[in-house]
Design a protein around this nucleic acid. Structure first.
Lengths: 190, 190
DNA sequence: GGCAAAGGTGTACGCGGTACAACTTTGAGG
DNA sequence: CCTCAAAGTTGTACCGCGTACACCTTTGCC
């Protein structure tokens, strides 16, 4: 990897870290892009070169995140029913990103734009899963979409149930809730 | 009703109509709040007195909408399983607002902010349903939330399936899709 | 070491949304 | 009918996000 790429990665990381530090201090809405850029030692314009939106700096998936998703999808046996396969991927994704999950819990729920972006991020994962399921069983595209949407909804239910728990609640609790919700959400027809 | 209230209602309606006219002409993003206000014959400030956001002018539920939801919820027999009750409400709501549905289809999908607000609107309905189900069966609040989230997800699946259909697709088609999705999404445990 | 391309920067702009201090309209009471 | 306070409207100024673009600096290859 050339010096160029190294610098880019470093800048990206610096901006992210600066942003997280400021957000944890003063909340999401209390920090402007201007400040993040200044703290990271770049210009506002450059900030927007790296992240298309302010929310992105908190939530945009790293290449590693995308990779993890692809691997998990690949790992699922073809014989596994769609619902179980999707459940396994979602659980695996959460297990792999526990630190991330804990950090995000501190910010999410405080700002509408941020929450929205978080949902869009879920949508991105959903898109991958939809394509995958449609390929697994091309006879029922509506069913594929439905399975993914339902599984995502179960994730949402688990997330808010966890959010309602006291502040220090461990990520393990969230994992239990997620597992329970996915189990109970299983469609009768699947 | 005094002159004051009449004028307020009229202004609100005028703004809405002006906005819809402009949006259908030039798309959601192609129209600024400034223009809507000018077309409706009020100031930008006044626009924001009536609608808190630009999206609100398209999507904010009228009092009649809220009333319909309350009536539908009231109509459901207590003996009906939660899943069927929620399904009936969602189907009823859609049936009652078919014109609205058709008009919205023309705008939704063209703008992120608008789509987001539409989802938030779904969230508002979800809130009502969640409270209702929790009251119906206080022993399982997580189950109540899960039921509502799953039913909403099914609605979402049906909506996007309908959006993918050719432009002139009738609302009746959407209703069929919605019914199918709700049926297939029924959790095994419910 | 020179040079094109990639990347960073400053500047200016558009738009949504808020705050606020005027100004105008409304309708109730004397 | 007049008065007057409350409700509603307006212009203005401001903030912050996001985009466009022209200009400058850095990079890595020949």
């Amino acid at each position: 990897m050339g010096l160029r790429e190294q610098k880019k990665d470093a800048a990206r990381r610096d901006i992210r870290e600066a942003a997280w530090r400021l957000f944890e201090e003063r909340g999401y809405a209390g920090v402007s892009v201007e400040e993040i850029a200044a703290t990271a030692g770049v210009s506002r314009t450059t900030f927007f070169n790296y992240f298309h939106t302010k929310e992105g700096v908190v939530l945009d998936p790293s290449p590693a995140d995308r990779e993890r998703l692809a691997v998990l999808v690949d790992e699922q046996p073809a014989a596994l029913p769609a619902w179980d396969a999707v459940s396994a991927v979602l659980l695996g994704l959460t297990r792999a990103g526990q630190d991330e999950v804990a950090r995000r819990r501190r910010l999410l729920g405080s700002d509408r734009a941020l929450d929205h972006r978080a949902q869009e991020l879920g949508e991105e994962v959903a898109g991958v899963l939809r394509d995958w399921l449609r390929e697994r069983d091309p006879t029922d595209p509506l069913g594929a979409n439905l399975t993914v949407d339902l599984a995502l909804a179960a994730t949402r239910t688990a997330w808010f149930a966890w959010s309602a728990r006291p502040e220090g609640s461990a990520v393990a609790v969230y994992l239990d809730l997620l597992e329970e919700c996915l189990r109970r959400a299983r469609p009768a027809g699947a």
